[in-house]
């Protein structure tokens, strides 16, 4: 097994008197997807914010390539190769694909004070980056980002992170707002990022999505790692139970199974959401 890129050692975080995270120990390796599962309020978001430099841990250390590091600002984490893609992609709806791809690092042509934004090159690179990740429907870099589907926007944001040399990709509920087909697109992109040797931290509360791409799973319950296991060590039912924190979910799962068996494999919408 390769050495971990990023390792969290005994991370604790409290906001004033409220303890949010207790003794978190996690590792991510290149070419591996770590799925961070947990119900709302389990501390997933706080953990991501610590990794991306928005918050600092109260105690505990972060190690990057075996060396202790601190991320006092999002910028520092980004420069270390840790890229966070949020639920809506963090892109600019009214900007073109090419322009939003290169925000802050615009390619230019020309000389001296007359350097101008190289639209053709920006569009070509952006479209190629997205297509290389498997989204072939994006062919025009002049299209506005807001005109893309949710899955395409996610893919664009992921392609951007990969293009600019991310080593650790943190995906914060990338599939939460997406339909089944769109979610599949995003999961395919996650697999592509993994194939390219990135370490991916995939945050979700949809066990199905996690099982489709995950190599390594960690379940957070009330700020602590309740379970840490590798692919194939637990069934979907067991994971769902862990996330819900009790056996009550098992009977519900059985009900859903029964429903799906009689409804062409479609889960009941209200429960799935």
């Amino acid at each position: 097994m390769t050495a971990p890129i990023l390792a969290l050692k005994n991370i604790n975080k409290s906001f004033g008197p409220i303890d949010v995270l207790h003794d978190i120990n996690l590792e991510v390796r290149p070419g591996e997807v770590l799925c961070l599962l947990g119900d709302n309020g389990a501390g997933k978001s706080t953990l991501i914010k610590i990794l991306s430099g928005v918050h600092q841990p109260t105690t505990g250390t972060i190690e990057l390539d075996g060396k202790e590091v601190t991320f006092p600002a999002p910028r520092v984490a980004q420069e270390a190769g840790i890229s966070t893609v949020h639920q809506f992609g963090g892109t600019f709806p009214l900007m073109s694909i090419g322009r939003s791809f290169f925000v802050g690092v615009e390619p230019t042509k020309g000389w001296g004070p007359f350097k101008i934004y190289d639209r053709a090159r920006a569009n070509a690179i952006a479209v190629k980056a997205v297509q290389d990740m498997g989204i072939t429907r994006i062919t025009d870099g002049d299209r506005l980002v807001g005109g893309l589907s949710g899955g395409e926007r996610q893919s664009l944001a992921i392609a951007r992170a990969v293009h600019f040399g991310a080593r650790v990709l943190i995906l914060d509920e990338p599939t939460a707002a997406l339909g089944v087909k769109q979610a599949t697109h995003v999961l395919r992109i996650v697999n592509e990022a993994k194939r390219r040797g990135l370490a991916v931290i995939f945050i979700t509360h949809q066990v199905m999505h996690a099982m489709a791409v995950g190599d390594h799973f960690a379940v957070l319950i009330r700020g602590a790692v309740a379970a840490d296991f590798r692919k194939g060590e637990k069934t979907r039912e067991e994971i769902t139970d862990l996330m819900a924190g009790g056996a009550s979910m098992a009977s519900l799962e059985a009900e859903i199974e029964g429903y799906m068996a009689t409804h062409d494999g479609h889960p009941p919408q209200a429960v799935q959401a």
């Binding site: 980004q78 600019f92 900007m95 939003s100 101008i116």
Partner: peptide, 27 residues
């Protein structure tokens, strides 16, 4: 020239689109 041709013009649009993302992108 400044807004539509120089690369910095892009920054102004990004700031209005999503200030937090713009800052995270290094603007």
């Amino acid at each position: 020239f400044f807004i539509h041709f120089s690369p910095k013009g892009n920054w102004i649009f990004a700031m209005g689109g999503d200030k937090v993302s713009a800052r995270n992108a290094g603007i």
